[in-house]
Each structure stands twice: as C-alpha cells, then as structure tokens.
Nucleic acid binder design. Structure first.
Lengths: 191, 191
DNA sequence: GTCTATACCTTGATAGAC
DNA sequence: GTCTATCAAGGTATAGAC
C-alpha cells in the first residue's frame, strides 16, 4: 500500500475515534508509520486530509446503507429498509463516522471541509427520502407523511442516538431511541 | 460580579460556540478579563471548569424546558408540551449546549466530566418521559407507545437536528426534521 | 485572590538535502 | 517521494511574590 493510502486509512480511524480538531498530523504520522516529509508532500494542509476523509466516509456510509438495505431481500418493505438504516446505530459509542465532524468548530470554519460534510449528509438524506417514498408506495408507511420531513426526522434519530449513547456511556440508550422511532413508524397497536 | 463567575460565564459561551477541547484556558481568560493567577486559583484544572459548565448548562436547560412547557398553558396537552421541547432546536446552528460535549473525546476521557454530562442528559430524559406519560393520559398520544423509548426517540430527534443543521449549514434542516417528528406523533390524517 | 514570570510540550507547518 | 532539522505560536499548567 502506498503512503498516501496509509495516511488516509489511519486518519479515517483517528478522526472517527478522537475527532478531527483533536487529532494532530503527528498522531496520524505515528499511527500510519509515514514520515513527516511524506505526509506534507501528499497533504500540504491538514484540512486537505480532512476533506478526503469526509468524502471517503460519506461514500462508504452510503454504499454500506445501500448494500444493507439490498441484503434485506426483495420481500422487504420500505419500512423494513428504514429499520435497517436506523439499526446502523449498532455501535453507537464510537460515534457516527460523519456526524462527529458536525460539532467540530474547526470543520465548520473550513469552507471546503464544511462543504464536503454537507454533501455527505445530503447524499444520505436523498437515499432515505427515496426509501420513505417506496414505503408509502408499498403501503408499509402512512401516506400522509411528507417524505423529506420524515427522512430528516429519521436521520436526526440516528445522529441523535449516537449523541445520547456517548453522553450516557451506554449502547442501550441508542437502541431504546431506535426502538421508539420504529414504534412511531409502525401503525398503532389495537387498544 | 466576582472573578469566578466571570470565568464560568465566559466558559459557558466559549465551550458552547467552539467546543470544550478546542477552547483553551487562555482564551477564557482573555474573554472574561480574568488573569492567569486568578483563573488557576479557582479552577486548578481545565476539567474542573468543564464540569461546572456542564452542570450549569444541564440545570439551565432543564429549567428552561419546564418554564417553556408551563408557558404553553393549562389547556396544552402532553403532545403540545413535547412540541415545545422539539422546538428548542430553534437556533440549531449554534449547537446544543450539552450535546456538543458528547462528541468531544476530551470530555469522554475525563470520568467526572463524562458523569456530569450523563446526569444532564438523564435529567432531561426523565422530564420528557414524564411528559409522554401525561400525553397518553390526556389522550393526545398513542397509548401503545413505550414512554421511555418514545422519550429517547424525541431526544434523539432534537440532538440529531442540531447535527444536521450544522452539517448542512442551514437552520431549515433542523426545522424540517422537527416537523417530520411532530407528524409522526400526530394521529394519521384521513386518506 | 491576584499578579508576573517561567516551563515544558504539542501543533501545524516550512526548508532544504537526498 | 521521503528524510531530518527547525520554527513560531499556542496549550496547560506551576512558582513565588504581593
């Protein structure tokens, strides 16, 4: 594997686990085993690396959701596929691979990084909104729901579940939130 | 106002706007106008200040929610009061005053800070869960919903709405998510 | 309680040789 | 592309006088 790829791979992990602003180039060099000259040759500024990591995370998340939804099978309803998305909070304590960037002032302050982050979220939103429409078409979701608003609410549940889990130190907090959201999507039980 | 209070007031703003780990003691001193000797006399370690800020933010948020819910009047249903809570995302770009701490690795790494954060979230969760129960009692919410899970889902929507708004750079993203959640709480429209 | 001086470390690079 | 040396600034304090 070439140096550039080693740097990106290390940075993906470190920005995810420790945050973008609180991870230094030096830490990435140490983790990847790549030297300083090499690092700054490939990424003249830290934000260049940040942008590449955000872009890669966005693509991988989207591909992952698509694959997981497809794995639910042809018999799965739109609502089943949304449940697959909600359950991506299965390892909530680690945090969302893109959500962690949103609360980082150093990310928001860098226009190109911020733009990359916005794109990553927008791409996921598009997929979820489309899935809501499919659920309405197959009858698994209420027809009166606004697809864009419902998609935004579900993405919020996912992002918020990561926050709650980290604050409480407990995965079960995220699982509870997801269960609550699934119940709201389902038709009311009799009684 | 005494120095200690000046420090806490400045730190509340700066940790909120720029993050705990990415705000230095020096910046707080400069903003508050308090000198170095004074600062370290009152707060020997930065985490001591962090804990005080998290505790204060937690109390103020809770008091604010209670006051806003009470202001909805005696005719308001439980669901109306939950709507008041959801609309606390009205200035979402600034971020949640306690949610911003949850993605900060420096906060999670300090046991006493992490514990303070957990308490702040738990106190809000208790209020929201109680409000869900009241909504079920007054008939404004489905009786089949689990109160704890519904409360967790609604808190996630709020925390996630802050994340989405910051990622997109747009308040309207948060408003859309909240609207989607309110629609899910409401009984289905005819059709 | 508050002041100034000091200290040691990390950050985010840049310079110039190979 | 990669190496080592270097750097100015800032982070997080501590020491000791007033």
């Amino acid at each position: 594997m070439d140096s550039r790829q080693k740097i990106v791979d290390s940075a993906k992990q470190m920005f995810w686990r420790h945050g973008y602003s609180t991870t230094s180039p030096r830490q990435v060099m140490a983790d990847s085993g790549v030297g300083q000259g090499s690092f700054y040759h490939h990424f003249p500024a830290k934000s260049d690396l940040g942008r590449e990591v955000v872009d890669a995370n966005g693509r991988e998340l989207l591909d992952g959701f698509r694959a997981d939804m497809a794995a639910a099978g042809t018999g799965a309803t739109g609502r089943d596929r949304l449940a697959v998305f909600l359950k991506s909070t299965g390892d909530a304590l680690a945090g969302c691979r893109i959500g962690g960037f949103a609360y980082d002032a150093g990310v928001i302050a860098e226009p190109t990084l911020h733009a990359a982050l916005g794109s990553a979220f927008a791409n996921v939103a598009e997929l979820i909104e489309q899935t809501v429409r499919e659920g309405q078409a197959d009858g698994s979701l209420r027809a009166d729901l606004d697809p864009a608003a419902t998609a935004a609410a579900l993405m919020s549940v996912v992002e918020g579940a990561f926050v709650l889990a980290r604050a409480s130190g407990s995965q079960s907090t995220a699982d509870t939130a997801v269960a609550g959201a699934l119940a709201l999507l389902a038709p009311p039980a009799a009684g």
